[in-house]
Design a binder for these strands. Structure first.
Lengths: 200, 200
DNA sequence: AAACAGTTTAACCATATAGTTAAATCCATT
DNA sequence: AATGGATTTAACTATATGGTTAAACTGTTT
């Protein structure tokens, strides 16, 4: 951590705090502490909390879009593609378990931010739908809106991480190890369920 | 609204604000305004923001447990039971779309609160698992942890509401009516998918 | 009429927090 | 050694916000 540039140290700290507590719950002092600097220097690099948050949010959304696009352009048969997407999303979430909740919450708090980032990043969602929706022979037999499938996949993958504390408490008696094991097993479970769901 | 008792007006207003903005984002002044009273009276009824929040949170968790239990004791064959649960949960969410996110967020913010409420309500989650997990002939052939199924169901049902703004923007070009229609169709989609998932 | 809870008004206090400032210090480059 | 940017220190300002207070008012009950 020590050998990062100060700006990078700040962004790293800001991510840690914002991801866990959100814009409303985060404190500039806490971010400064986490970065190992003082508040004056924090404001020296990022003029305001809003600017700092914007930097973090924009970066996260960029990464989010980038990884969506990567799954889009993977040329695979539908069944393998579903596996591929599940693997990718789960590994993304495991390396940053707070990100999905963060994105959802902050967009709900201020939906305009997403529009702004999408505009400034020239991100065009028009062909996003095609993940499960086009150009594959198997696909024409699905018989439903492909978005139903992708939303199901996202829900099944994201929910157990977003609601971890709740689910761990009510279904696993608060046992962390048991829940971790549940998540390990979940990967194959979701893959096989998506497969079943896609069989006519 | 005018004919409710003041305490009920306050709780109603507090729900509106807390559900949307969470504990951190909510302002006592805003709650007072929403209830059509002043801050002094608000504190006259609920001594502090913490107490008011606690009242709302406790009430929500109680309702949550109650409805879980009602689905538990419904004596139905597995397949119909899944339909029953999907219907119930969706109608609950539609009458209060912010509640699932609220519960998840506030539990993440302070997991101890859930333990406290569960303790004071003497709620024992030990047999929750049995929803999809016991005493039904079909069930012994499932061949997986029934919790995987219930978490999938919850994820598929809750996620499209929790992430509404995000999904609406990226998959529906911001079109609200289109997304509402998507949610209408989703009900049957989820039911049929759960069915498929339960077929050996 | 007196009493009393509910309610308003308006000012007020205490604290947390975002953000600023000025001077001093550190450290690398010239 | 001098320059200049990065960083610290510490005090400070402004504001938002939770919470309090006292006095007045309202409407109902006794």
């Amino acid at each position: 951590m020590k050998d990062l540039s100060t700006e990078e140290k700040i962004l790293e700290a800001a991510r840690n705090i914002f991801f866990r507590k959100g814009m409303d719950g985060a404190r500039m002092q806490e971010i400064a502490d986490e970065a190992g600097i003082n508040k004056a220097l924090l404001h020296y690099y990022f003029r305001s909390k809003d600017k700092l948050f914007e930097a973090v949010f924009q970066e996260v959304i960029r990464g989010f879009f980038r990884s969506i696009e990567q799954t889009l352009y993977a040329e695979l048969p539908l069944t393998e593609k579903a596996d591929f997407i599940v693997d990718r999303y789960i590994s993304m979430i495991e390396s940053n378990p707070f990100v999905p909740q963060f994105i959802i919450n902050e967009i709900n708090r201020n939906p305009k931010m997403l529009r702004d980032v999408m505009f400034s990043e020239k991100f065009n969602p028009a062909n996003l739908v095609k993940v499960f929706g086009e150009s594959d022979a198997e696909n024409h037999q699905l018989g439903f809106d492909p978005r139903q499938m992708i939303v199901s996949l996202l829900g099944m993958v994201i929910f157990p991480y977003a609601a971890r504390n709740l689910l761990q408490m009510i279904y696993f008696d608060g046992n962390e190890e048991a829940y971790s094991q549940f998540l390990v097993e979940r990967k194959e479970f979701v893959k096989s369920m998506i497969l079943k769901m896609m069989q006519s």
